[in-house]
Design a binder for these strands. Structure first.
Lengths: 195, 195
DNA sequence: GTTCTTTCTTAAGCTATCTTAAGAGTTTTT
DNA sequence: AAAAACTCTTAAGATAGCTTAAGAAAGAAC
Protein backbone atom coordinates (compact mmCIF):
# COMPACT_ATOMS: atom_id res chain seq x y z
CA UNK A 1 0.00 0.00 0.00
CA UNK A 2 1.57 3.27 -1.17
CA UNK A 3 1.48 6.38 0.98
CA UNK A 4 -0.70 7.98 -1.73
CA UNK A 5 -3.26 5.19 -1.24
CA UNK A 6 -3.11 5.71 2.48
CA UNK A 7 -3.78 9.42 2.12
CA UNK A 8 -6.69 8.65 -0.20
CA UNK A 9 -8.24 6.43 2.42
CA UNK A 10 -8.12 9.24 4.98
CA UNK A 11 -9.38 11.87 2.53
CA UNK A 12 -12.29 9.69 1.43
CA UNK A 13 -13.11 9.04 5.05
CA UNK A 14 -13.25 12.74 5.88
CA UNK A 15 -14.93 13.60 2.60
CA UNK A 16 -17.68 11.13 3.39
CA UNK A 17 -18.86 13.37 6.23
CA UNK A 18 -18.08 16.83 4.86
CA UNK A 19 -17.34 18.46 1.51
CA UNK A 20 -13.64 18.99 0.72
CA UNK A 21 -12.15 21.10 -2.12
CA UNK A 22 -8.86 20.28 -3.85
CA UNK A 23 -7.29 23.06 -1.80
CA UNK A 24 -8.55 21.49 1.41
CA UNK A 25 -7.19 18.11 0.41
CA UNK A 26 -3.77 19.61 -0.27
CA UNK A 27 -3.76 21.32 3.10
CA UNK A 28 -4.72 18.17 4.93
CA UNK A 29 -2.05 16.18 3.13
CA UNK A 30 0.59 18.59 4.39
CA UNK A 31 -0.01 17.80 8.06
CA UNK A 32 -0.02 14.02 7.70
CA UNK A 33 2.54 11.78 9.36
CA UNK A 34 2.86 8.03 8.95
CA UNK A 35 3.56 5.39 11.52
CA UNK A 36 3.76 1.64 11.42
CA UNK A 37 3.46 -0.66 14.42
CA UNK A 38 4.23 -4.32 14.77
CA UNK A 39 1.80 -6.58 16.59
CA UNK A 40 1.88 -5.83 20.34
CA UNK A 41 3.73 -2.51 19.90
CA UNK A 42 2.41 0.40 21.93
CA UNK A 43 1.41 3.73 20.43
CA UNK A 44 0.79 5.19 23.89
CA UNK A 45 1.85 3.95 27.32
CA UNK A 46 1.05 5.29 30.80
CA UNK A 47 3.00 8.50 31.39
CA UNK A 48 2.97 9.52 27.73
CA UNK A 49 1.01 12.50 26.50
CA UNK A 50 -1.09 12.03 23.39
CA UNK A 51 -0.37 14.82 20.93
CA UNK A 52 -1.81 13.32 17.76
CA UNK A 53 -5.11 12.17 16.34
CA UNK A 54 -4.59 8.66 15.02
CA UNK A 55 -6.33 7.12 12.01
CA UNK A 56 -6.03 3.38 11.35
CA UNK A 57 -5.20 2.78 7.70
CA UNK A 58 -4.67 -0.93 8.08
CA UNK A 59 -4.64 -3.24 11.07
CA UNK A 60 -6.30 -3.45 14.46
CA UNK A 61 -5.72 -1.61 17.74
CA UNK A 62 -7.10 -1.28 21.24
CA UNK A 63 -6.82 1.03 24.22
CA UNK A 64 -6.86 -0.39 27.73
CA UNK A 65 -5.72 0.31 31.27
CA UNK A 66 -4.65 -1.77 34.23
CA UNK A 67 -6.51 -1.55 37.52
CA UNK A 68 -4.95 -1.94 40.99
CA UNK A 69 -5.04 -5.71 40.59
CA UNK A 70 -3.31 -5.53 37.22
CA UNK A 71 -6.52 -6.56 35.49
CA UNK A 72 -6.80 -5.26 31.93
CA UNK A 73 -9.87 -3.26 30.95
CA UNK A 74 -10.37 -2.52 27.28
CA UNK A 75 -11.92 0.86 26.53
CA UNK A 76 -11.77 1.06 22.77
CA UNK A 77 -11.21 -1.26 19.83
CA UNK A 78 -10.59 -0.17 16.25
CA UNK A 79 -9.85 -1.41 12.75
CA UNK A 80 -9.43 0.20 9.32
CA UNK A 81 -10.87 3.72 9.09
CA UNK A 82 -11.38 4.10 12.83
CA UNK A 83 -9.72 6.69 15.02
CA UNK A 84 -7.93 5.44 18.11
CA UNK A 85 -6.49 7.48 20.97
CA UNK A 86 -6.51 8.26 24.64
CA UNK A 87 -8.78 11.25 24.11
CA UNK A 88 -8.51 12.08 27.80
CA UNK A 89 -4.81 12.75 27.40
CA UNK A 90 -5.16 14.40 24.00
CA UNK A 91 -7.86 16.80 25.16
CA UNK A 92 -6.62 17.57 28.66
CA UNK A 93 -2.91 17.46 27.73
CA UNK A 94 -2.25 15.46 30.84
CA UNK A 95 -0.31 12.23 31.12
CA UNK A 96 -2.11 9.17 29.91
CA UNK A 97 -2.87 6.32 32.26
CA UNK A 98 -3.64 4.01 29.37
CA UNK A 99 -2.04 1.77 26.82
CA UNK A 100 -2.89 2.05 23.14
CA UNK A 101 -1.63 -1.08 21.47
CA UNK A 102 -1.54 -2.77 18.07
CA UNK A 103 -3.29 -6.15 18.00
CA UNK A 104 -2.01 -6.79 14.47
CA UNK A 105 0.68 -5.22 12.31
CA UNK A 106 -0.86 -1.77 11.86
CA UNK A 107 -0.39 1.26 9.59
CA UNK A 108 -1.47 4.61 11.00
CA UNK A 109 -1.81 8.18 9.85
CA UNK A 110 -1.06 10.67 12.63
CA UNK A 111 -2.26 14.27 12.71
CA UNK A 112 -0.16 16.29 15.18
CA UNK A 113 -2.14 18.65 17.37
CA UNK A 114 -0.29 21.86 16.57
CA UNK A 115 -0.56 21.42 12.83
CA UNK A 116 -4.13 20.25 13.17
CA UNK A 117 -5.12 23.34 15.12
CA UNK A 118 -3.61 25.54 12.42
CA UNK A 119 -5.49 23.49 9.86
CA UNK A 120 -8.77 24.19 11.69
CA UNK A 121 -8.39 27.85 10.67
CA UNK A 122 -7.39 27.19 7.09
CA UNK A 123 -10.04 24.52 6.53
CA UNK A 124 -12.94 25.06 8.91
CA UNK A 125 -14.61 21.88 7.59
CA UNK A 126 -11.90 19.91 9.33
CA UNK A 127 -12.76 21.62 12.57
CA UNK A 128 -16.41 20.60 12.11
CA UNK A 129 -15.33 17.08 11.29
CA UNK A 130 -13.42 16.69 14.52
CA UNK A 131 -16.07 18.40 16.59
CA UNK A 132 -18.40 15.68 15.30
CA UNK A 133 -15.84 13.03 16.19
CA UNK A 134 -15.60 14.32 19.76
CA UNK A 135 -19.37 14.44 20.05
CA UNK A 136 -19.67 10.90 18.81
CA UNK A 137 -17.02 9.79 21.25
CA UNK A 138 -19.05 11.34 24.05
CA UNK A 139 -22.29 9.78 22.88
CA UNK A 140 -20.78 6.33 22.54
CA UNK A 141 -19.31 6.60 26.04
CA UNK A 142 -22.76 7.45 27.38
CA UNK A 143 -24.26 4.59 25.39
CA UNK A 144 -21.76 2.28 27.01
CA UNK A 145 -22.58 3.40 30.53
CA UNK A 146 -26.25 2.89 29.82
CA UNK A 147 -25.60 -0.62 28.52
CA UNK A 148 -23.38 -1.57 31.38
CA UNK A 149 -25.99 -0.43 33.89
CA UNK A 150 -29.08 -1.94 32.31
CA UNK A 151 -27.99 -5.10 30.52
CA UNK A 152 -26.76 -8.46 31.71
CA UNK A 153 -23.48 -9.80 30.41
CA UNK A 154 -25.02 -12.10 27.81
CA UNK A 155 -27.04 -9.28 26.31
CA UNK A 156 -24.00 -7.01 26.27
CA UNK A 157 -22.15 -9.76 24.43
CA UNK A 158 -24.80 -10.25 21.75
CA UNK A 159 -25.04 -6.46 21.35
CA UNK A 160 -21.31 -6.34 20.92
CA UNK A 161 -21.36 -9.01 18.22
CA UNK A 162 -24.15 -7.26 16.37
CA UNK A 163 -22.44 -3.87 16.51
CA UNK A 164 -18.85 -4.96 15.92
CA UNK A 165 -19.22 -8.09 13.81
CA UNK A 166 -16.05 -7.30 11.82
CA UNK A 167 -13.98 -6.56 14.92
CA UNK A 168 -15.15 -9.60 16.83
CA UNK A 169 -13.62 -11.89 14.19
CA UNK A 170 -10.17 -10.38 14.55
CA UNK A 171 -9.78 -9.95 18.29
CA UNK A 172 -9.10 -12.66 20.88
CA UNK A 173 -11.99 -13.47 23.15
CA UNK A 174 -10.22 -12.51 26.34
CA UNK A 175 -9.98 -8.97 25.00
CA UNK A 176 -13.67 -8.94 24.19
CA UNK A 177 -14.30 -10.15 27.74
CA UNK A 178 -12.19 -7.30 29.09
CA UNK A 179 -14.21 -4.88 26.94
CA UNK A 180 -17.49 -6.29 28.25
CA UNK A 181 -16.27 -6.17 31.85
CA UNK A 182 -16.34 -9.92 32.52
CA UNK A 183 -13.73 -12.66 32.89
CA UNK A 184 -12.74 -14.73 29.85
CA UNK A 185 -13.92 -17.86 31.66
CA UNK A 186 -17.34 -16.41 32.13
CA UNK A 187 -17.54 -15.32 28.49
CA UNK A 188 -16.66 -18.85 27.44
CA UNK A 189 -19.39 -20.10 29.74
CA UNK A 190 -21.95 -17.71 28.24
CA UNK A 191 -21.05 -18.71 24.70
CA UNK A 192 -21.57 -22.35 25.49
CA UNK A 193 -24.73 -21.96 27.51
CA UNK A 194 -26.54 -19.91 24.90
CA UNK A 195 -25.41 -21.49 21.66
CA UNK B 1 -32.92 36.25 44.32
CA UNK B 2 -33.17 38.90 41.61
CA UNK B 3 -32.57 38.11 37.96
CA UNK B 4 -29.53 40.40 38.11
CA UNK B 5 -28.08 38.23 40.89
CA UNK B 6 -28.78 35.15 38.82
CA UNK B 7 -26.96 36.60 35.83
CA UNK B 8 -24.03 37.53 38.06
CA UNK B 9 -23.75 33.95 39.22
CA UNK B 10 -23.50 32.71 35.64
CA UNK B 11 -21.08 35.45 34.58
CA UNK B 12 -18.80 34.79 37.54
CA UNK B 13 -18.93 31.09 36.78
CA UNK B 14 -17.84 31.64 33.18
CA UNK B 15 -15.39 34.35 34.13
CA UNK B 16 -13.71 31.96 36.52
CA UNK B 17 -12.49 29.90 33.58
CA UNK B 18 -11.93 32.56 30.92
CA UNK B 19 -11.49 36.35 30.74
CA UNK B 20 -14.64 38.34 29.88
CA UNK B 21 -14.85 42.02 28.91
CA UNK B 22 -17.84 44.25 29.71
CA UNK B 23 -18.87 43.88 26.08
CA UNK B 24 -18.78 40.09 26.38
CA UNK B 25 -20.89 40.19 29.53
CA UNK B 26 -23.48 42.32 27.80
CA UNK B 27 -23.63 39.95 24.85
CA UNK B 28 -24.02 36.92 27.09
CA UNK B 29 -26.77 38.61 29.08
CA UNK B 30 -28.76 39.11 25.88
CA UNK B 31 -29.14 35.39 25.17
CA UNK B 32 -30.19 34.38 28.66
CA UNK B 33 -33.58 32.87 29.46
CA UNK B 34 -34.92 32.01 32.90
CA UNK B 35 -36.86 28.99 34.00
CA UNK B 36 -38.14 27.83 37.33
CA UNK B 37 -39.11 24.27 38.17
CA UNK B 38 -41.00 22.86 41.09
CA UNK B 39 -39.76 19.74 42.82
CA UNK B 40 -40.31 16.72 40.54
CA UNK B 41 -40.95 18.84 37.44
CA UNK B 42 -39.26 17.66 34.27
CA UNK B 43 -37.04 19.88 32.16
CA UNK B 44 -36.70 17.15 29.53
CA UNK B 45 -38.71 13.97 28.97
CA UNK B 46 -38.23 11.13 26.48
CA UNK B 47 -39.21 12.31 23.01
CA UNK B 48 -38.16 15.91 23.65
CA UNK B 49 -35.21 17.48 21.91
CA UNK B 50 -32.80 19.45 24.06
CA UNK B 51 -32.16 22.84 22.49
CA UNK B 52 -30.66 24.69 25.43
CA UNK B 53 -27.64 24.56 27.69
CA UNK B 54 -28.92 24.65 31.26
CA UNK B 55 -27.19 26.25 34.22
CA UNK B 56 -28.44 25.61 37.74
CA UNK B 57 -28.72 28.89 39.66
CA UNK B 58 -30.40 27.39 42.67
CA UNK B 59 -31.67 23.92 43.45
CA UNK B 60 -30.83 20.36 42.54
CA UNK B 61 -31.46 18.28 39.42
CA UNK B 62 -30.74 14.90 37.94
CA UNK B 63 -30.87 13.13 34.59
CA UNK B 64 -31.93 9.49 34.37
CA UNK B 65 -33.49 6.95 32.05
CA UNK B 66 -35.68 3.90 32.45
CA UNK B 67 -34.48 0.51 31.24
CA UNK B 68 -36.72 -2.26 29.84
CA UNK B 69 -37.71 -3.26 33.36
CA UNK B 70 -38.62 0.30 34.26
CA UNK B 71 -35.60 0.55 36.54
CA UNK B 72 -34.27 4.08 36.92
CA UNK B 73 -30.61 4.73 36.17
CA UNK B 74 -29.20 8.12 37.15
CA UNK B 75 -26.60 9.51 34.78
CA UNK B 76 -25.98 12.96 36.16
CA UNK B 77 -26.62 14.92 39.33
CA UNK B 78 -26.18 18.65 39.74
CA UNK B 79 -26.58 21.54 42.15
CA UNK B 80 -25.84 25.28 42.09
CA UNK B 81 -23.40 26.32 39.35
CA UNK B 82 -23.51 22.97 37.54
CA UNK B 83 -24.71 22.43 34.01
CA UNK B 84 -27.35 19.77 33.45
CA UNK B 85 -28.63 18.39 30.17
CA UNK B 86 -29.09 15.41 27.94
CA UNK B 87 -25.98 16.27 25.97
CA UNK B 88 -26.69 13.37 23.65
CA UNK B 89 -29.87 15.05 22.49
CA UNK B 90 -28.40 18.54 22.51
CA UNK B 91 -25.38 17.58 20.43
CA UNK B 92 -26.98 15.10 18.04
CA UNK B 93 -30.31 16.99 17.80
CA UNK B 94 -32.12 13.72 18.14
CA UNK B 95 -34.96 12.90 20.49
CA UNK B 96 -33.93 12.36 24.08
CA UNK B 97 -34.54 9.03 25.74
CA UNK B 98 -33.95 10.56 29.15
CA UNK B 99 -35.62 12.50 31.89
CA UNK B 100 -34.04 15.61 33.36
CA UNK B 101 -35.84 16.38 36.57
CA UNK B 102 -35.77 18.81 39.48
CA UNK B 103 -35.14 17.16 42.85
CA UNK B 104 -35.86 20.43 44.64
CA UNK B 105 -37.47 23.69 43.63
CA UNK B 106 -34.92 24.86 41.06
CA UNK B 107 -34.02 28.08 39.25
CA UNK B 108 -32.27 27.70 35.89
CA UNK B 109 -30.67 29.88 33.28
CA UNK B 110 -31.16 28.52 29.77
CA UNK B 111 -28.98 29.38 26.78
CA UNK B 112 -30.82 28.50 23.55
CA UNK B 113 -28.67 26.80 20.94
CA UNK B 114 -29.30 29.21 18.06
CA UNK B 115 -28.45 32.29 20.06
CA UNK B 116 -25.53 30.52 21.67
CA UNK B 117 -24.05 29.59 18.31
CA UNK B 118 -24.30 33.20 17.19
CA UNK B 119 -22.66 34.21 20.46
CA UNK B 120 -19.74 31.85 19.71
CA UNK B 121 -18.81 34.18 16.83
CA UNK B 122 -19.27 37.41 18.74
CA UNK B 123 -17.48 36.18 21.85
CA UNK B 124 -15.04 33.39 20.95
CA UNK B 125 -14.18 32.94 24.63
CA UNK B 126 -17.64 31.52 25.13
CA UNK B 127 -16.93 28.99 22.41
CA UNK B 128 -13.75 27.96 24.22
CA UNK B 129 -15.64 27.75 27.48
CA UNK B 130 -18.17 25.31 26.08
CA UNK B 131 -15.58 23.30 24.22
CA UNK B 132 -13.96 22.80 27.63
CA UNK B 133 -17.31 21.83 29.11
CA UNK B 134 -17.83 19.19 26.43
CA UNK B 135 -14.33 17.85 26.92
CA UNK B 136 -14.86 17.61 30.65
CA UNK B 137 -18.14 15.83 30.09
CA UNK B 138 -16.33 13.29 27.95
CA UNK B 139 -13.54 12.82 30.45
CA UNK B 140 -15.91 12.34 33.36
CA UNK B 141 -17.89 9.76 31.36
CA UNK B 142 -14.67 7.85 30.73
CA UNK B 143 -13.73 8.16 34.38
CA UNK B 144 -17.07 6.66 35.27
CA UNK B 145 -16.66 3.68 32.96
CA UNK B 146 -13.23 3.04 34.43
CA UNK B 147 -14.63 3.16 37.96
CA UNK B 148 -17.56 0.94 37.18
CA UNK B 149 -15.28 -1.65 35.64
CA UNK B 150 -12.53 -1.71 38.24
CA UNK B 151 -14.14 -0.92 41.57
CA UNK B 152 -16.53 -2.78 43.82
CA UNK B 153 -19.74 -1.14 44.92
CA UNK B 154 -18.51 -0.06 48.33
CA UNK B 155 -15.47 1.64 46.86
CA UNK B 156 -17.63 3.39 44.27
CA UNK B 157 -19.83 4.61 47.11
CA UNK B 158 -16.97 6.02 49.19
CA UNK B 159 -15.53 7.63 46.04
CA UNK B 160 -18.92 9.17 45.37
CA UNK B 161 -19.15 10.62 48.87
CA UNK B 162 -15.66 12.05 48.65
CA UNK B 163 -16.27 13.63 45.25
CA UNK B 164 -19.84 14.83 45.77
CA UNK B 165 -20.05 15.48 49.50
CA UNK B 166 -22.38 18.46 49.00
CA UNK B 167 -24.68 16.59 46.63
CA UNK B 168 -24.86 13.47 48.77
CA UNK B 169 -26.48 15.45 51.58
CA UNK B 170 -29.33 16.69 49.40
CA UNK B 171 -30.26 13.64 47.39
CA UNK B 172 -32.24 10.60 48.55
CA UNK B 173 -30.21 7.43 48.89
CA UNK B 174 -32.19 5.47 46.35
CA UNK B 175 -31.07 7.98 43.73
CA UNK B 176 -27.46 7.62 44.78
CA UNK B 177 -27.92 3.85 44.51
CA UNK B 178 -29.27 4.27 40.99
CA UNK B 179 -26.26 6.45 40.16
CA UNK B 180 -23.87 3.82 41.51
CA UNK B 181 -25.66 1.03 39.66
CA UNK B 182 -26.84 -0.90 42.71
CA UNK B 183 -30.17 -1.44 44.46
CA UNK B 184 -31.17 0.82 47.36
CA UNK B 185 -31.35 -2.25 49.61
CA UNK B 186 -27.79 -3.15 48.82
CA UNK B 187 -26.58 0.40 49.42
CA UNK B 188 -28.30 0.37 52.78
CA UNK B 189 -26.56 -2.93 53.51
CA UNK B 190 -23.14 -1.52 52.54
CA UNK B 191 -23.61 1.56 54.69
CA UNK B 192 -24.40 -0.57 57.70
CA UNK B 193 -21.69 -3.16 57.19
CA UNK B 194 -18.86 -0.64 56.80
CA UNK B 195 -19.80 2.03 59.31
C1' DG C 1 7.11 -30.95 12.09
C1' DT C 2 8.16 -30.22 16.98
C1' DT C 3 8.23 -27.20 20.65
C1' DC C 4 6.76 -23.16 22.90
C1' DT C 5 3.34 -19.69 23.65
C1' DT C 6 -1.04 -17.97 23.45
C1' DT C 7 -5.89 -18.59 23.71
C1' DC C 8 -10.14 -21.11 24.94
C1' DT C 9 -12.91 -24.35 27.64
C1' DT C 10 -14.73 -26.86 31.64
C1' DA C 11 -16.06 -27.42 36.19
C1' DA C 12 -16.37 -26.83 41.29
C1' DG C 13 -16.84 -23.80 44.95
C1' DC C 14 -17.29 -19.05 46.34
C1' DT C 15 -18.88 -14.02 46.78
C1' DA C 16 -21.12 -9.82 45.47
C1' DT C 17 -25.26 -8.26 44.41
C1' DC C 18 -30.32 -8.83 43.58
C1' DT C 19 -35.21 -9.99 44.84
C1' DT C 20 -38.91 -9.97 47.72
C1' DA C 21 -41.28 -8.63 51.53
C1' DA C 22 -42.26 -6.36 55.58
C1' DG C 23 -41.82 -2.84 58.88
C1' DA C 24 -39.96 1.53 60.68
C1' DG C 25 -38.88 6.30 59.89
C1' DT C 26 -39.58 10.58 57.40
C1' DT C 27 -41.75 14.13 54.87
C1' DT C 28 -45.60 16.13 52.69
C1' DT C 29 -50.38 16.92 52.19
C1' DT C 30 -54.87 17.49 53.91
C1' DA D 1 -52.83 16.48 64.07
C1' DA D 2 -53.98 12.79 61.14
C1' DA D 3 -53.46 10.64 56.85
C1' DA D 4 -50.92 9.74 52.90
C1' DA D 5 -46.80 9.33 50.40
C1' DC D 6 -42.17 8.64 50.28
C1' DT D 7 -37.68 6.81 51.95
C1' DC D 8 -34.67 3.71 54.51
C1' DT D 9 -33.59 -0.63 56.84
C1' DT D 10 -33.39 -5.60 57.72
C1' DA D 11 -33.20 -10.21 56.56
C1' DA D 12 -33.74 -14.64 53.99
C1' DG D 13 -33.20 -16.91 49.82
C1' DA D 14 -31.72 -16.69 44.92
C1' DT D 15 -28.44 -15.87 41.08
C1' DA D 16 -24.90 -13.73 38.12
C1' DG D 17 -20.42 -13.57 37.77
C1' DC D 18 -15.65 -14.57 39.92
C1' DT D 19 -11.65 -17.60 41.28
C1' DT D 20 -8.79 -21.28 40.74
C1' DA D 21 -6.94 -24.89 38.38
C1' DA D 22 -6.27 -27.92 34.76
C1' DG D 23 -6.31 -29.49 30.24
C1' DA D 24 -7.33 -28.88 25.19
C1' DA D 25 -6.75 -26.42 21.06
C1' DA D 26 -4.70 -23.31 18.10
C1' DG D 27 -0.87 -20.34 16.43
C1' DA D 28 3.81 -18.92 16.22
C1' DA D 29 8.66 -19.89 16.37
C1' DC D 30 12.38 -22.72 15.71
Amino acid sequence: MTTANQIDLLINHINYHIELSQYDIGKISEVIEFKELKKKDFLISPGDRSNTMNFIVQGCMRSFYLDENAQEHTLQLGIEEWWINDLYSYLSRKESRMYVQALEQTKLILLPRLKLEKLYFEVPEVSHFFRMKFQNAYVSMQERIINSMSDEAYERYTDFIKTYRDIEQRVPQYIIASYLGITPEFLSHLRKKNS
